[in-house]
Simulated assay, not measured.
Amino acid sequence: MYWLGMVVVYDKASLQRFFQLFTFMSVILAAHTLFQSVTGTILLASERVDTFLSRTDVAYYQMASTDTRRIGSFFIDPNWNGAFFALAFFLPLGLFVASSSVWQKLSYLLALVLILLALLCTYSTGAWIALLMGLIVFLVFIGSVASRILFLLVGCGLAVLVFFLFPEQIALQMQHASANNELSLRIAAWQTALLVTQAYPWFGVGLGHQAYLIRSNMYRVPEQFVVLSHPHNSYLEWAAMAGIPVLCIFLVLIGIALQQSCLNWRRAEPAVKPLIGAGIASTITLSINSFSINGWTHFALALIIWPILGAVASPLLRTPDGEAKNG
C-alpha cells in the first residue's frame, strides 16, 4: 500500500486528486456515523455484526451512567472510528489551504465540519488528543505565514462552533476522558505487554489476537481486570506479538518514509506544501493515537495510512534536478 501511494502520485494535480478521493470516502463514512448516531442502525450490517452489537457486554459501547452510545460505524469499535476521522481530518484541511477557488474551499470546509461531528460521536479521547497534536504538526508544515493565519482562523472558528453548538457532547467527552478505569486499564495493559515482551523478546508470542489472548494471560498484572486480545498500543503489540526486532524494523520504515516526506516538503512549491504537510500530519496523528489503541496495526487503518504516507513521500514529486514539480 505504501508503494501504491508512491506510484500514483507524481505532481500536485495527482496528489490533489488522491486526497480528494480520500476526502470523499471520509465524508461518506462521516455521514454514516451521524446516521448511526441518530437511528442506531449500521447500514449493510451482517447478522454477525448485529449479534455482536446486541451483546450486553458491548451494548453499543454505551457510556456509563448515560443513554449516550459511542458510534463505531463500519469500524464497529468507536476508538478505531475516531482514529480514522482524526487522521482523515487533515486531508480536506490541506486541500482547503492549497485551493484557490471559493467554492472548493467551501466544499472542503463542509467536509471538515462533517468529519469533526463524526469524531465527536465516537467520544474517543485518544483520537482527540492525537488530532490536537496533529494540528500543531500541520501548523509547522503548512507553508507560508498567510496560510498559518488562515489555518488559525478556520481552526478557531470550528472550535467555537463545536463548543457552542454541542456543549452536552463536549461535557460527555470530558466525563469519558476522566473516567476512573480508562487510563488505569490502558496503563495496566501496557504493563502486561511489557512483561510479555520481556519473556519473548526476539519473536514474541506470535502474530494474531488469539495468540496474545492465550499466552499473555499468565503475565497479566492485577490492575488489568479484563483479559485483552491486544495491548491497546501498536508499538507494544509489535514487540509482544512479533518481537523487538520487528518493532525496530517497523519504526525504521516509518522514520525513512517521514524523512522522505520532509525532503519533498522542503523542495516543494508553496502551493504543494500544505498537501504534503497534511499527509505528514495524518501520519503523526495516527502514530500518536497508536499509543492508546492498535492504530498502525489495525487491518483497515493501516491500509488507509500507508498509501497516504507513500503519496507524500513519493520520489516522483521530485524532478531529476531535485526541484519539486508543481503540477
Rank of each mutant, 00 (worst) to 15 (best):
L4V: 06
L4Q: 07
L4H: 01
V9S: 01
V9P: 03
V9G: 00
L15I: 03
Q16I: 12
Q20W: 13
L21W: 07
T23S: 10
S26E: 12
S26D: 11
S26Q: 07
I28L: 15
L29V: 12
F35H: 12
S37P: 06
L43V: 14
S46K: 06
S46A: 09
S46Y: 14
F52W: 15
S54P: 09
R55N: 15
T56E: 15
A59G: 13
Y60M: 15
M63K: 09
T66Q: 11
D67I: 02
D67T: 09
I71F: 03
F75T: 04
D77M: 12
N79V: 04
N81W: 13
F85C: 05
A86D: 14
L87A: 13
L91C: 11
P92C: 01
L93F: 00
G94H: 01
G94D: 01
L95K: 02
L95G: 05
S100R: 15
Q104T: 12
L109P: 12
V113A: 05
V113F: 11
L114P: 10
A118Y: 13
A118T: 02
C121S: 15
T122M: 11
S124L: 06
G126R: 08
G126C: 02
G126W: 04
A130T: 03
L131M: 11
G134L: 00
F138P: 01
G143T: 03
G143M: 05
S147P: 03
F151Q: 02
G155T: 05
G157Q: 12
G157P: 13
L158E: 10
L158H: 02
F164P: 11
L165G: 06
F166K: 05
E168G: 07
Q175S: 11
S178C: 07
I187R: 10
A189G: 09
T192Y: 12
T192A: 01
T197W: 12
T197S: 08
T197N: 06
A199Y: 15
Y200M: 09
P201N: 06
W202K: 15
W202M: 06
L207S: 11
G208K: 04
H209D: 15
A211R: 08
Y212S: 08
R215P: 12
R215Y: 09
S216I: 12
M218K: 14
V221P: 11
Q224R: 06
S229R: 08
P231A: 03
H232F: 07
N233F: 05
A242P: 14
I244G: 04
I244Q: 04
V246D: 02
L247A: 07
L247N: 02
I249K: 03
L251D: 13
V252W: 04
V252N: 10
L253T: 14
L253V: 14
I254S: 08
I256K: 09
L258H: 07
L258D: 00
C262M: 13
C262Y: 15
N264D: 01
R266Y: 04
R267H: 04
A271W: 00
V272S: 05
K273S: 01
K273M: 01
I276D: 00
G277T: 00
A281R: 06
I284D: 06
S287V: 05
I288Y: 06
S292E: 09
S292F: 08
G295F: 01
I304G: 04
W306M: 03
P307Y: 00
P307F: 00
I308Y: 04
G310E: 07
V312Q: 02
P315C: 05
T319R: 15
D321Y: 00
D321M: 02
E323A: 10
A324E: 05
A324N: 03
A324K: 00
N326C: 14
